[in-house]
Write a protein that binds this DNA or RNA. Structure first.
Lengths: 247, 247
DNA sequence: AAGTGGTCTAGACCACAAA
DNA sequence: TTGTGGTCTAGACCACTTG
């Protein structure tokens, strides 16, 4: 209506964002209701909603149905520090990083399905009949990581022993008595699928940090393809390069 | 109206997604127009648009204003392979990876601004007056990476010599005759800001893969903080773990 | 019951691309 | 000029949360 090149919802979003950055709207404070804001900005509620939606996608506000919309405070960030050079997989450095600050962590079984059209990365596993095991990792009872493990069906008993060992990788190592080592790891970013978005309780398309990789039997052949998804704003993988003298 | 728990736009999105996955709607094919689809699904155009919008966020369709909506074909993926263990920064492995398949690459200066409230990572630079240089890297004339370099203002002449060396890191190394080495690198995922989204010509909140890090003067102190953003579905950082015997 | 956000409609007008 | 997607409105009804 008034608009030049920039749509109103965009200008409104920018305006509210400015109020947040300047501190006028403090962290954790509640925004006025949509009806109220629509009146203030003199636009239809739908237009106002679209502005808020942009801010939600940027991660600066959090919408709680039935309650209100709140300015988000910076989430705790888990830094997964990887020692570059270490190859043998003693532990699981991602899981270990989750446990900082005495956080309580656990891995929970979600589903086991036969996998008939596995991702191309699974080819090196050389297995004719793969299964896919999905799990969720919690940190202080908050969902932190969704995992998909692809491996040969001979390991279909894994879910039943997760409880005994706490974590699936540990179950694999101890119950099946296997030594593991890294083959490769990769990092990418992805939009949350319908399924992942529902589990994380975020909207479809929210940025996820994906870390996938192949794990070998130590000195042997590839055993496992893993694909882990984390909310993008809550984790960071750090590679440190150390001096030879140990600095 | 008819709906149970799942909103119509969500069911429609899932339905179209199914048609795409099953091959009924082929890659690069054009979807029927919004008006047409709204009629087919017997909903208002706005509801239909919302469904399409979900698919866009998932990256399965691409919307071209004035032309139509198309099923996306898998984008070329650049794999940035990092040799774990290498510390001295001979080249720039990200930029080198961009150049695979004889692609033409270039780095273009965008802006230089004094930085008064730098990100906390810049503290180790120990500089009282930082500047921020923003650049864009193109691969076959397509925007691929947006970079923000933070360094001391004594390097404010950098933009003028980028052209002579092609890339800012190379300009730094050659024009100022500095040897560089990695301090650390980090990977995270982030929603595209208003500014980045506009440059990449994607919608606000699109997942970006972020790689930031500190680069030192070889054997010396931290010199540079870099923050590189790539479209999440077009790049992947791969860490390979090699056997001692060179496998 | 009152207040919040979530979904949906019918219709209008605009901006862009291609013929 | 025609067809496509982009923005916006006014109003309705629903679902969830809290008193």
């Amino acid at each position: 209506m008034v608009g030049g090149a920039i749509p109103q919802y965009r200008r409104i979003a920018a305006s509210i964002l400015e109020s947040i950055k300047s501190g006028e709207l403090a962290s954790d404070s509640q925004l006025p209701s949509e009806t109220e804001l629509a009146k203030q900005f003199n636009v239809n509620r739908l237009t106002l909603r679209r502005a808020i939606s942009e801010l939600q996608r940027l991660g600066v506000v959090e919408i709680q149905r039935g309650k209100g919309t709140y300015v988000t405070s910076p989430p705790d960030l888990v830094e997964v520090v990887m020692s570059v050079g270490a190859r043998s997989q003693r532990g699981d450095c991602l899981r270990e990083s989750l446990a900082v600050n005495d956080a309580h962590t656990r891995e929970e079984f979600l589903s086991l399905t036969p996998e008939h059209s596995p991702p191309p990365e699974c080819e090196v596993l050389g297995s004719p009949s793969l299964i896919r095991i999905d799990t969720a990792m919690y940190r202080n009872d908050e969902l932190w990581i969704i995992n998909s493990y692809y491996l040969d069906e001979e390991y279909r008993g894994l879910p039943e022993v997760i409880g005994d060992y706490g974590y699936i990788i540990r179950a694999l190592r101890r119950h099946y008595n296997i030594k593991l080592e890294y083959s490769w790891r990769a990092f990418s970013a992805e939009a949350a699928s319908f399924e992942d978005a529902e589990l994380f309780r975020v909207s479809t398309g929210t940025p996820l940090l994906v870390r996938d990789g192949i794990t070998n039997i130590a000195g042997g052949k590839p055993l496992l393809y893993v694909r882990r998804r984390l909310l993008g704003d809550r984790a960071k993988f750090v590679l440190t390069y150390r001096d030879e003298d140990g600095e």
